[in-house]
Design a protein around this nucleic acid. Sequence first.
DNA 1: CCAAGATGCGTGTCGGTGTGCCCAAGGAGA
DNA 2: TCTCCTTGGGCACACCGACACGCATCTTGG
Lengths: 159, 159
Amino acid sequence: MALDRKDLAILAELTTNARASHTELANKVGLSSTALARRQKTLEDDGYIQAYQAALDLAQFGLTTTVLVRIALESQSDEALKAFEAEVVKCPSVVRCFLMSGTDDYILIVLARDIQDFERIHRTELSRLPRVARVQSSFALREVVNRAVPTVVFGETKR
Amino acid sequence: MALDRKDLAILAELTTNARASHTELANKVGLSSTALARRQKTLEDDGYIQAYQAALDLAQFGLTTTVLVRIALESQSDEALKAFEAEVVKCPSVVRCFLMSGTDDYILIVLARDIQDFERIHRTELSRLPRVARVQSSFALREVVNRAVPTVVFGETKR
DNA sequence: CCAAGATGCGTGTCGGTGTGCCCAAGGAGA
DNA sequence: TCTCCTTGGGCACACCGACACGCATCTTGG
């Protein structure tokens, strides 16, 4: 099951306009609407397309501050990891959380309105996480790159 | 321009089903299709909804390895930052790049097929970035949380 | 009590979507 | 070499649904 460049063109276009109609996509890719509908359905059925989702402008909600939080636990026991993870998924300001190799156990990406708001988040969300030994926060001054999909995906010309 | 809980319900639903029809959304939110269409259009015009995009399953493309890369530059001069950023946006495997406060200058999130593939990326993409003094990579063992939108957005009941 | 904004219903038109059918290209096998 | 078969593409058509409009009603705030 390999994807040719037309499939990749469809995916690339759908990552921009998820609501594009078959005819609209067909014109951009260079296919008929019938052929495009078939390919798009195949891409969905095969799981290449997970979902169609609206991208919100978080700045409109005042969430302009991104913070990277490094967290080390008291213990790396399986029980400690489970306890921590069960709680971190409930934190409403956390958008990503990685279990990391190396010294830092977890790295979180937190969105806040501003620095004062992060202080509140640190107090009400982060400091209540269990088994935490150390929390270290770094503020992002600017976001240089923000892609949902690496461009390398669309460059793999297999056919 | 404040959003009430129905607006938030619309946004929450659209972040899941971006292709949902007006009637479909109207039923879930508890509105008529007319009222919903108006609200959705307002949300789009006011910029709350940036775009509708397809979410690809990156695992289907073999991109199962996430790497956090910390990069320090030789110099923090404006010229060095500009030179670095102009090149990092071209790296096809980089999905995010933050300019950070603190000792590390930049933090990158890189997607690779596996560790061997990351070695290739390190050699062909990262090591060619200009003005780099130090590169430090940490592998993500697992992704505990991955949200496009923090849940805190949908909890702000203003009306 | 009034005005303005929001809602809901109904309707009509337009467009998208799905289907059936035929055609072209490529590969396998006799 | 010829033929069969499979795969993918395009055309045409019909149906269903989405979308936009107008109008009446209701609620909210002053």
